[in-house]
Simulated assay, not measured.
Amino acid sequence: MSAQISLVEVTDANRDAVIAVRVHPGQEQFVASVEKSFQDARDTPEAKPWFRAVYDGATPVGFVMLSWNLVPGPGLRGPYFLWRLLVGAEHQDRGYGTAILTEVVRLLREAGATELYTSCVPGEGSPLPFYRAFGFEPTGEVDDDGEVILLLDLGSRP
C-alpha cells in the first residue's frame, strides 16, 4: 500500500484525538507518547519544536515532531532533528512511517535543508532498521541517553 497522508496542525479541536494515537505497548520504550511530546515541546522551546498530526483522510494515524531550523548547541543537534515519529498501533505496517518521512523530507528541502538528524534506542524492536532502510546512516555517535545518532543526507532520497 502507498499511504496517502497529510500533516495537520494540532489545535484544540483535534488535540484529544491526536493524543489518543498510541504505539504498541512493546514500542513505548522506543518512542514517547504524543502527550509527552507536547510536554517536551513546552519545556524545550529553544529546540524550536515543530509538530504535526498525521492524518489519513479524517483519521489521525500518527504524529511527527522536529526541531526546525535551530542553532545547534549543547544538547541540541540540528539545524533539523527528527524528534518524534510515531504511527498508531492499529495503523502500522501500512506504509505510513515511510510516507511521513517522505513528506518531511519534501518540506525540509523546500526550507533549504540538506540533512536531517534523528536518534533511536538500539535493541530488539528498535526503529533503527526502519530508519536505515529509509537512508539514515549512523554517525558513530551515541547521545547521553544511549541513543544512536543517525543522519540522512536529503540529497540521497528521490
Rank of each mutant, 00 (worst) to 15 (best):
D56L: 03
V8D: 07
A53S: 14
V21R: 03
D16N: 14
D12Y: 05
A89I: 00
L116F: 05
A111W: 01
Q4A: 15
D93R: 15
Y80L: 03
V87G: 03
F30C: 09
D43N: 09
P127T: 07
Y55R: 07
A113T: 10
V105R: 10
L76W: 11
A53G: 13
R52D: 04
D143I: 05
A13S: 15
V71S: 12
P74T: 04
V31I: 15
A99W: 06
P45S: 11
E9L: 05
A53H: 09
V8L: 13
S37Y: 02
D144S: 14
A89T: 04
V10K: 08
D144L: 13
V87F: 00
A53V: 11
V64Q: 00
I149Y: 00
T118R: 07
E28R: 14
V148D: 04
T98L: 09
A32Q: 11
N69G: 13
K36C: 01
L151I: 13
E147N: 14
E110N: 04
N69I: 01
I149W: 00
S37H: 11
G97K: 02
A133V: 00
G135L: 04
P122L: 11
G140A: 03
F136Y: 08
G125W: 09
Q27T: 11
T139K: 11
E9R: 13
L107Y: 01
R84N: 13
L108Y: 05
F130C: 05
D43M: 08
L108R: 02
Q4D: 15
R132V: 09
P129S: 04
F63W: 09
A99P: 04
W83T: 11
I5N: 02
E137P: 00
R106S: 12
L7R: 12
S33N: 10
Q27P: 10
R42W: 05
A133L: 01
L107F: 07
I100L: 01
G57V: 00
A111Y: 02
L7F: 12
L82T: 06
G75E: 12
S33L: 11
D143C: 01
P122I: 02
V8T: 14
V34M: 04
A133R: 14
L7A: 10
G140L: 06
R109M: 12
L7W: 10
S119Y: 02
L82M: 09
